[in-house]
Design a protein around this nucleic acid. Structure first.
Lengths: 208, 208, 208, 208
DNA sequence: GATGAATGAGTGTTCATTCAT
DNA sequence: CATGAATGAACACTCATTCAT
């Protein structure tokens, strides 16, 4: 009995993953507004109702998609930050790892951008709450540049500047890569990242 | 006769403006994906076919919406920049005027964000080309921070830094206000703007 | 007053004729199913409501179109038949004049074919009754080959054959040109007409 | 398993056939221009979307309708011709079988006439190409009187006459039955057919 | 575990017609 | 004499969802 259900769960998980992957590709290619369950199912090669069998409804599917995206981004970026000891190192790692991830995961990026702007859950939840477990939320905190900047100021590695605003501006500057890459596929994201590291170092530097 | 035709044109323009305004509100409130011509018409209080009578099809309506938005933004931001003499003044004016505009035109902003991500024209045009006349395109160039930064470096008012990347980062940092405001209506955009002016001044300052 | 109304009537008639002509062209080009009052008005260069001003509604417009077509065909074919003295001469003239008319009035032909198959009047009238005055109906009787064949048999110019069926078959054979021409614009209708004259002469010939 | 899938296919085929039949009836009754998917669905007793589920779009439905008509006509007429040995026999069989078919399949006939004149496929295809497989096209060649007339002349069973024009005239004369029957339901098509056999025999007869 | 059939709500668009001017 | 504005009905088509199998 147990082995049976395990086996079932395994194939089930595989199918779910397969569908989520296909969904991300479809969304990235044709945009969320044009994405339908049928098109996703077509890409997987199963019947439309099979998708609904696995996810119940469209909202649940989006939940799964977003969770998958967070996990993927987290796995790529968090280790790079944690590997650094100094705040300056962590800041540079944050910028570089994020931009490198964006550069190498354009499909997921495009899909996430589409969902972020175009998707509104049927139930009242806000977009940030989708695909979100308490555990995941904690882990994602690592990705917030705010904590890095605060730490850097507290141990006087960084000088005086408006932490909250700088954090927000930095996130904006980093995220600008997304639109840019999607519009200009040949954009040199790496060079931009290095420039951004330099620009930020001037801002956080201790003023003499 | 002339006054007659003017009157007619005026009436027509008024209705068109009324519909565009209503459309922007609807898009901002429920998102582009959920927006339909019928819902826009309902808000105006006319039949759905009246909207199509004035704009022919949905694409033309979006064209009109976007043109209206560009004009509105241009009228709000350009004069503030042009009123300044120094590059530093223009840079600060760019930041402040943009953020102030974002802060005071949230509905238009939300709608534009929705369209930018979710709308794909039926014909081949890219999003940048929508609602765009040659004349408008020229005027919009004024709003690009790149020209300000380049000028500042040329007359040695600014120091040495990666102009292209800084320009892009700045646009990203400014645009970050949009998402923030939409998510946190009480966000103090003005304070963020002042902080951003300060942060930027450090980056562009001549290094001793 | 009278001169006024006459003037009005004249321009009115001109406009009506102009609209009818345009309508025939449009129907021939895009088919009755795709024809709308707006498209007809566009071709004339007037507002859609101007067409309705002149004809009241779509049915009346079709009436006018069909009447115009009958008159045109009648004017082209009837004299040719009446110019002949013998039944054989009339029969040949019937065939030749009809086919020549079809060959040289393809637009009207295409339009008539479209209307004949696709148009159903809102009121109960049958298609034959459209655009039909009593006077016109009488004149049209001349175009029926049946009367020619009957006369030819009565004065023993023709031999023995089934008059009604031959008449119907002949009309069918003549009308076949319409479809053929519309499908193959280079079809040699004249040669077909001559062949048809020959074929018919065999059928009506007095058997020895 | 196999029986299962067969059953499914069978059900599907049955529904498709049911819809096609209903569509033919509707078209025959109210004309193609007035025919809508909804009206067809209403006749079947299903939702409009059910029709679209089975055929995808209106064009595909028309394709299926026309194919069905060709098959039906072919099955009725071809065997009768092939059963004859002489060219004269085949010619008479062609006329009689066609007219008998027209007489007994008025609904299909009316529908075909409607489609032939009023329907224009969305894609570029011409009307002849609709519902047409290569296999079907070959089989339909049997129905062309041209081949019968040519064969009759080659083995001197028939005399000298313009084969192409006679073939076209014959088709026209046969098809004339369609309009006649639709306008006069009590028309004696059989008698007309016999007359037509007689008329044709005179034309093709060897002249002494 | 997965599927095909079916549906109802909703979409953008076309159209003939009405009406005040 | 002619127009622009507006409308309601109809249209083909898409979609997420339900359900029996």
């Amino acid at each position: 009995m147990r082995s049976d259900s395990k086996k079932v769960t395994f194939t089930q998980a595989a199918r779910r993953a397969q569908i989520v992957t296909a969904a991300i590709e479809v969304i990235a290619e044709i945009g969320w507004a044009q994405t339908s369950i049928r098109k996703i199912a077509d890409r997987v090669g199963v019947a439309m109702s099979a998708v609904l069998y696995h996810f119940g409804n469209k909202d649940n599917l989006v939940d799964a998609i977003i969770e998958e995206m967070y996990r993927s981004a987290l796995a790529a970026v968090a280790p790079a930050i944690q590997a650094e000891n100094t705040s300056a190192g962590k800041l540079a790692a944050y910028i570089r790892a994020n931009i490198a991830y964006f550069d190498s995961h354009r499909t997921q990026l495009a899909a996430l951008a589409q969902l972020g702007a175009g998707y509104q859950p049927t139930d009242g939840r806000r977009f940030d709450e989708l695909g979100m477990t308490e555990e995941l939320r904690e882990e994602l905190a690592i990705l917030d540049p705010n904590s890095i900047l605060v730490a850097g100021q507290q141990d006087h590695e960084f000088g005086d500047f408006a932490v909250g605003s700088m954090s927000m501006a930095l996130r904006g500057a980093v995220n600008a890569v997304v639109e840019k890459i999607l519009r200009e596929p040949d954009f040199d994201a790496h060079a931009y990242g290095e420039d951004l590291v330099d620009i930020c170092s001037r801002v956080v530097a201790v003023q003499r």
